[in-house]
Amino acid sequence: MKLLIIDDAPEMLRAFRDILEAYGCEVYVAENGEEGLARYTEVMPDVVLMDILMPKLDGISATKKILEMDPSAKIIVISAVGKSGLDNECLLAGAKKFIIKPFKIKELLSSINSLVAE
């Protein structure tokens, strides 16, 4: 399974990569929304894990842009921001799921698996 992770925290990218690779996923990363868009067309991943607060292009705008290019894109927004209403904003932008940090790896994996199974 191909995953694209878009997050501006290198440690977070590293941790995602370590874990998801250990589960046998093929992991690609990008450090901001803009880079994420470029990587998406290149890789065409099964699922995108998207941060919200990022330089250049934020996660919500990036979500919209990816969906413009590929309406079948499966995007999970993962954010540290628990602001009320943000989950709805992300879902309205077209994200399939909204997960708040910190989360359990098992929860994340089951979210990814259920999306892929759709």
Binding site: A9, R14, F16, I19, K101, P102, I105
Partner: peptide
């Protein structure tokens, strides 16, 4: 604090 906690948590789970 959430991002570092998530990173630590992930490795603990591993």
């Amino acid at each position: 604090l959430r991002t570092p906690i998530t990173v630590i948590n992930s490795y603990i789970e591993m």
